[in-house]
Amino acid sequence: MKAIGFNFAKGQLRYTVLEGTKGSPLFQNKGKLDISPDTPTTDLMNWIHSNVDTIIKRVKPDAIAARMHWKITRQDQAKNFLFPMGILNLYCYNENLPINVFGTQAMTAKKLGLPKGAKPLNECDSLIGSHPPNWDNAQRYSALAAWMILPE
């Protein structure tokens, strides 16, 4: 099964593609796409939609996951973190693709099949590997989202 995980940030879209199982996730691909942070909201939504469409048509995943940001306190955070989730969900609805959304707190060791007490972000590199450039926490979160939907 091929799983893709998305993580949206200000002026950024991260994705990681994994195959395998929860116990042994296999890294396939990743990407970091940027757009000027000053892009107007309507253009930003079109950018999100165009890139999600291009990536999904190229990767052809079986399932899709995304990291959800729950702590939204400012308008620009809603535009950069929350609105893209709406675009992604609508895209999946139109394409009849399954999607799961996880907050950071939901990506627990237990749900990822890790030993009790393990921190998923810390364990990410040991199981999935390190894949520079741009292999930072924002990228790891997209990998964790994909990892969450791999089969047991």
Partner: peptide, 13 residues
């Protein structure tokens, strides 16, 4: 094409 358009999309007017 992605590399090319990313170079344009990163520009801030």
């Amino acid at each position: 094409c992605e590399e090319f358009r990313q170079a344009l999309e990163r520009l801030t007017i």
